[in-house]
């Protein structure tokens, strides 16, 4: 009997090791350990044994049963793992195929430039002021020290609607309106972005509609050195920390003294190239100290208050910054153009 049990154990283990599927394994389980299996049969024959032999044989039978069960379990685990691996292998996909595109648009390049400038000045305590695009002659010209008959306000250059109403030719009327609204009190720190219009034929460098951003600071004891410092921060933040700036005297009816600012060319670093016309410098904005006539007309005591103003063209900045070669691209809205401004810098 003892031998028979040992034989069964040997047989079973051999079958388990040879089995290759969970079903086969289950059949082996039923065959050896089931109620009709040979071990049970052996145990049934224990009645014939003596009282001394019975517990010894019983223990042995259980030992054999456990040994088979342990090996069986281990084998089952192996086979299950293999099955999972097989399933996963069959599920594999081509990870190099393209993903499902996410539809995302982006800012127009001019908005991108304008918001960048707005944010820069907001950080320095400026507010964003806006005003009408259809303007009174008074705010567009007269309040800015450009009286009627002034050569710089030729009818030919502006889109008039009536003698007194026109499409604004710059965003400066917003400055005049803001000052008037503040009723002779300071401080004012504003940045004024917006659309402006001039009577130009559209070509690669001219557009009858374009954007402008102007800034105005009015307060007690505002100095030209403050303008210098402000413009330097602007130039470095907007065009890169290694940009140099250069101020040149200029002329605008609404500022005195007047300034034009150049930055060292970002293309050639100041060595001279086609973009900077071999000068190493690029003209970027006009500025100056607010003309006392402008302050007085808006109700400010020019003995007490001084201010500075500056103005620039987002199209020009975008053209320089991104290398755009034709101003009309900004208004044609070719999606192949618009799409190029999605990347965050």
């Amino acid at each position: 009997m003892q031998e028979r049990l040992k034989e069964l154990q040997q047989e079973a283990i051999q079958s388990i090791e040879q089995s290759s599927s969970l079903k086969e394994l289950n059949d082996i389980r039923v065959a050896y350990l089931g109620k009709k299996g040979p071990i049970t049969e052996v145990l049934r024959g224990m009645g014939k044994l003596s009282a001394e032999e019975r517990p010894i044989m019983g223990a042995l039978a259980n030992e054999v049963r456990e040994a088979i069960a342990t090996i069986l379990e281990a084998k089952q685990k192996d086979l299950e793992e293999a099955a999972v691996l097989e399933k996963l292998a069959s599920e594999s996909i081509d990870v190099t195929l393209p993903g499902r595109p996410v539809k995302v648009g982006n800012h127009h390049p001019l908005t991108r430039i304008i918001e960048e400038i707005e944010d820069l000045f907001i950080g320095m305590g400026y507010q964003v002021a806006e005003g009408p695009e259809v303007e009174q002659d008074y705010y567009n010209f007269e309040a800015l020290n450009l009286p009627k008959g002034h050569p710089a306000r030729d009818m030919q250059d502006s889109f008039y609607i009536t003698d007194e109403i026109l499409l604004r030719t710059h965003t400066s009327p917003v400055q005049a309106r803001t000052m008037e609204k503040n009723q002779g009190k300071g401080p004012i720190k504003i940045i004024c972005p917006g659309k402006v219009y001039r009577r130009d034929n559209d070509d690669a460098t001219h557009s009858h509609q374009f954007m402008q951003i102007e800034g105005l600071v009015v307060g007690e004891n505002i100095r030209m050195s403050d303008l210098h410092g402000t413009l330097e921060i602007f130039a470095k933040k907007m065009f890169g920390e290694d940009r140099e700036i250069r101020l040149r005297p200029s002329f605008f009816p609404f500022t005195e003294p007047s300034v034009e600012m150049d930055i060292s060319c970002m293309i050639c670093g100041g060595n001279g190239c086609n973009v900077c016309k071999k000068t190493g410098w690029i003209e970027i904005l006009g500025a100056g100290m607010v003309h006392p006539n402008v302050l007085e007309m808006a109700g400010y005591d020019s003995k007490k208050y001084t201010g500075f103003a500056f103005g620039m063209g987002p199209e020009r900045i975008a053209m320089l910054k991104y290398g755009v070669d034709d101003i009309r691209h900004f208004y044609t809205n070719d999606v192949r153009f618009l799409k190029q401004y999605s990347k965050h810098e």
Partner: peptide, 13 residues
């Protein structure tokens, strides 16, 4: 001309 920034009462940006 020196480079300075406006001084005076702060304005909220």
């Amino acid at each position: 001309i020196p480079k300075t920034l406006p001084i005076g009462s702060a304005t909220p940006g």
